[in-house]
Design a protein around this nucleic acid. Structure first.
Lengths: 332, 332
DNA sequence: TTGTAGGCGTTATCAC
DNA sequence: GTGATAACGCCTACAA
């Protein structure tokens, strides 16, 4: 039987700590916030008292007074087929935020612009991280309007008023082309979800990088943004006796792995799968081991996003900036 | 350039609303909380003013005064290979919580018991949802000690002081056995992650259900909790000419699907894959279509967990209870 | 049916 | 280097 709200014993306040330490309430506050010098002796007494009582400052009161909730709102997209990837970001963001003394509050995409307005106006969140923005996203307006510092993960079409952190997709394109050429491929087959291609601009940036560098060499680029399940068959069909085709996709790596493994090798004289690997693919790591892999660095992107937000929050006058993280080849 | 904290214009308070509506501050409050009858006329004026100003009650002040933060803490496990599944739960929980007027704050497993103590003592969370508890979990103690209402998703060994919501794994076991027999199978091969089997007790409950009902029929049960990748080969090896083997696993369904599809049919005279399907498997739905599927009802489990927590929060004297959700066959 | 006023626990501005 | 004290914005018991 749960203890009722009323009979639950009240946690100690800073006044209790002050009394036990024989100092004033404000001194306790200063010890905690460090916003004014305190003698070693009294600091020790106060900290003792804090431990003894198991005191934690009341979040509501602190927020009310200081206008800082210590909470960062994380706008999460509706779960789609890429759930595993999403969880990697969310986990890393939450851990990094906690390391900086902030908590993460979920704001679902479902709530839309109204949800943003709510968490902002009520003062629950003092900053925001936005993930997977569409090209035109109704949720951007209330964020800007709120004036709160924010970071978007994923580079939007236009430079917004907040900071941006993302993988360098253009470089990714150049890396894939370079590797394909090195490995003696004549053709590069790019697969992926057609829906994603339409809605998000990371695909366009990637393609820009590909075309940019493919132009300089003899590599023929083929776009295959039809259903993922047909990837290996189409790849085989497109393959000619004396040619070698490299395959790559930003999404659908797992499906491609399985499908190709089922109909033949991931790597042989006629084809070479290059994988955008990631923490969500641990379950297929044996398969992955056979192919060249690029790390999309999702953990780093997440951590940088949080660090960047903390910078905007804590450094007065800090301006927004763009950080593109370089993809990396995974060493065999 | 972000607007600095100081120059950001302050949101309207209930006093602003009161002035605009020509009533007292308390009347505004009563309109909002509904804790006292208000005449239609003044209610209308107040609501008008609220809209006009875009007023939202300040969360810090409300929390301080009422001891309710409107925030539910969600203890999320470290991301593992089952990330997609996790995201289904989290998304559904966040959406359902919002429908009830609560927000979800993430508490990572990494923070451990100390994290629980922190969010509880500071008053950020007024209730908790615990996911994926280990058999012995250090985080349970501080939760109970806090006296806050809580719900665990996943039935623990012992009945805790909070409510429990989970899939009925015993019934799942009986359903799998019954179907295998109906389909003319002589043998049931159970695969899954050995680690999970050791740490979590849903597997034991499932096995109890299986053994319970397998005893009554001629079905031979084989446990295969070695590496998932070997599943289809072992299944084939174990298969005898005149026999039919049913295959089932609580985890690793996607891997099994791909692996079996690669080495032969999912369903033929010698074998029958039964899949624990779920929202995280959309990417392989074409494969799934060919086999009998059981819905693990993760969305329902999530929604019930939230509803149950809301009940504990809002109904004075409500006691904890156990809710087991029945698995369901997915209709072809 | 509505208004008045006190206090929730902190932070930060005054004083000393 | 430290202490008193006034808000922060809301809820609700008490008055009218």
């Amino acid at each position: 039987m749960a203890v009722s709200r009323a009979e639950r014993k009240k946690p100690p306040t800073s006044l209790d700590v002050a009394r036990l330490a024989g100092v004033s309430q404000s001194t306790v506050s200063y010890v905690l916030t460090g916003s004014r010098p305190i003698s070693e002796a009294t600091r020790a007494r106060v900290e003792d008292a804090i431990d003894k009582l198991g005191y934690h400052p009341n979040s509501g009161a602190r927020t009310l007074r200081s206008q800082r909730s210590g909470v960062i709102g994380l706008m999460v997209p509706e779960a789609d087929s890429d759930d595993g990837v999403l969880m990697v970001f969310i986990g890393a963001i939450a851990r990094e935020a906690q390391r900086h003394g902030y908590d993460i509050l979920l704001v679902t995409a479902q709530e839309g612009a109204r949800g943003i307005r709510r968490v902002v106006r009520t003062g629950v969140c003092e900053a925001l991280i936005l993930m997977e923005l569409d090209r035109q996203d109704e949720r951007v307006a209330p964020v800007i309007e709120s004036g709160l510092p924010f970071v978007t993960i994923g580079k939007p079409e236009e430079f917004p008023q907040g900071s941006v952190v993302d993988l360098d997709f253009e470089m990714l394109g150049r890396m894939v082309v370079a590797r394909a050429v090195e490995e003696g491929c004549d053709r590069l087959l790019l697969f992926g979800s057609p829906d994603r291609k339409r809605r998000r601009n990371d695909v366009s940036r990637f393609l820009a990088g590909v075309e940019d560098s493919a132009g300089e060499c003899e590599l023929e680029v083929v776009l295959d943004h039809e259903a993922l399940s047909g990837v290996p068959e189409r790849a085989l069909r497109l393959t000619l006796p004396n040619q070698r085709t490299a395959l790559f996709g930003i999404t659908g790596v797992r499906q491609a792995l399985f499908a190709m493994a089922a109909t033949g090798a991931l790597v042989d004289e006629t084809r070479l799968l290059i994988a955008l690997s990631g923490e969500d693919l641990v379950d297929v790591s044996p398969l992955l081991a056979a192919v060249p892999q690029i790390d999309p660095r999702r953990i780093e992107v997440s951590e940088i996003a949080v660090a960047e937000l903390v910078r905007l929050l804590q450094i007065e006058g800090a301006g927004p900036r763009i950080t593109l993280v370089e993809p990396r080849w995974v060493e065999g």
